[in-house]
Amino acid sequence: RTSMTEEYRVPDGMVGLIIGRGGEQINKIQQDSGCKVQISPDSGGLPERSVSLTGAPESVQKAKMMLDDIVSR
């Protein structure tokens, strides 16, 4: 199975929601999608934060859908 890494961007203000209490939400995204999700520690003052998604292409797609779902709330 091919693994890929894709850079994705999320609004900086949503990072807390994506990570969740004690990392609960980000762990759920990783478990449900099978994709490794790494959020860059700092946006460098930019409105968006970089997130790197690593996994099989379908896992990366699923993680993106889950991120979009959180961001659109």
Rank of each mutant, 00 (worst) to 15 (best):
34 G>H: 04
33 S>G: 00
51 V>H: 00
39 I>P: 03
65 M>C: 13
37 V>A: 04
63 A>T: 01
45 G>Q: 09
73 R>S: 15
48 E>M: 11
23 G>R: 09
7 E>H: 14
72 S>L: 09
1 R>G: 10
38 Q>L: 09
51 V>R: 00
59 S>V: 04
30 Q>T: 07
57 P>E: 05
49 R>Y: 04
30 Q>I: 06
3 S>T: 15
31 Q>G: 05
6 E>F: 09
34 G>Y: 00
2 T>I: 11
28 K>Q: 10
59 S>R: 04
63 A>L: 00
69 D>V: 07
52 S>V: 14
59 S>T: 06
6 E>D: 07
1 R>K: 15
12 D>Q: 11
4 M>D: 09
71 V>R: 06
25 Q>K: 07
58 E>N: 05
25 Q>C: 09
8 Y>I: 11
12 D>P: 15
2 T>D: 13
64 K>I: 05
61 Q>M: 11
39 I>S: 02
68 D>Y: 03
68 D>A: 06
58 E>V: 06
62 K>H: 06
43 S>V: 09
34 G>W: 00
17 L>Q: 12
29 I>S: 01
30 Q>F: 05
22 G>V: 04
22 G>W: 05
71 V>S: 05
16 G>L: 03
3 S>F: 15
29 I>W: 00
14 M>F: 04
30 Q>H: 04
43 S>E: 10
46 L>W: 07
14 M>R: 04
15 V>S: 06
1 R>M: 15
32 D>P: 00
52 S>H: 14
11 P>I: 05
32 D>M: 14
24 E>R: 12
64 K>P: 01
15 V>F: 10
49 R>G: 06
73 R>M: 13
54 T>V: 11
4 M>Q: 15
46 L>A: 11
42 D>V: 08
68 D>M: 04
36 K>Y: 11
68 D>N: 13
10 V>H: 02
5 T>C: 08
10 V>C: 08
19 I>L: 13
60 V>F: 01
51 V>Q: 00
52 S>W: 13
24 E>M: 11
60 V>G: 01
17 L>G: 12
9 R>T: 15
56 A>Q: 09
67 L>R: 01
2 T>M: 15
30 Q>M: 15
11 P>R: 05
1 R>D: 14
9 R>S: 12
38 Q>K: 10
6 E>L: 15
72 S>V: 10
30 Q>Y: 00
57 P>Y: 03
34 G>S: 04
48 E>L: 08
25 Q>R: 12
27 N>L: 10
20 G>W: 00
3 S>I: 15
42 D>N: 10
37 V>R: 01
59 S>H: 10
50 S>E: 06
58 E>W: 04
67 L>G: 02
34 G>R: 05
1 R>W: 08
18 I>S: 04
45 G>L: 06
33 S>Y: 02
47 P>L: 09
55 G>P: 00
21 R>A: 14
2 T>Q: 03
56 A>N: 05
15 V>R: 04
46 L>G: 15
6 E>Q: 14
41 P>R: 11
72 S>P: 05
12 D>F: 07
47 P>Y: 12
10 V>P: 03
15 V>M: 14
62 K>D: 01
36 K>L: 11
17 L>K: 11
22 G>Y: 06
9 R>N: 15
8 Y>M: 12
72 S>E: 13
43 S>Q: 12
59 S>I: 01
42 D>C: 10
57 P>H: 06
1 R>A: 06
12 D>A: 14
9 R>P: 14
53 L>W: 00
46 L>D: 11
28 K>E: 05
22 G>R: 12
69 D>M: 08
71 V>M: 11
20 G>H: 02
58 E>C: 05
46 L>P: 07
2 T>H: 08
47 P>V: 07
69 D>F: 05
7 E>N: 09
51 V>L: 14
22 G>Q: 12
32 D>K: 11
34 G>Q: 05
41 P>Y: 09
70 I>Q: 04
52 S>E: 13
48 E>Y: 15
37 V>S: 01
42 D>I: 12
22 G>L: 05
6 E>V: 15
55 G>V: 00
29 I>T: 01
50 S>R: 14
29 I>E: 01
5 T>I: 11
44 G>I: 04
36 K>V: 13
49 R>Q: 10
13 G>M: 11
36 K>M: 12
69 D>Y: 05
17 L>R: 12
2 T>K: 13
44 G>C: 09
41 P>H: 14
61 Q>P: 02
5 T>S: 09
56 A>C: 15
67 L>H: 02
41 P>N: 08
46 L>Y: 07
61 Q>L: 09
50 S>V: 13
20 G>D: 10
37 V>M: 08
3 S>Q: 15
7 E>V: 06
18 I>L: 14
21 R>L: 14
14 M>H: 05
39 I>R: 02
2 T>Y: 12
17 L>F: 10
57 P>K: 06
37 V>N: 00
8 Y>C: 02
71 V>I: 11
65 M>I: 12
64 K>L: 01
33 S>L: 02
10 V>Q: 01
49 R>V: 08
70 I>A: 05
50 S>A: 11
62 K>W: 02
29 I>H: 00
32 D>Y: 07
24 E>G: 06
25 Q>M: 08
12 D>W: 03
39 I>N: 02
60 V>T: 02
15 V>Y: 06
32 D>Q: 14
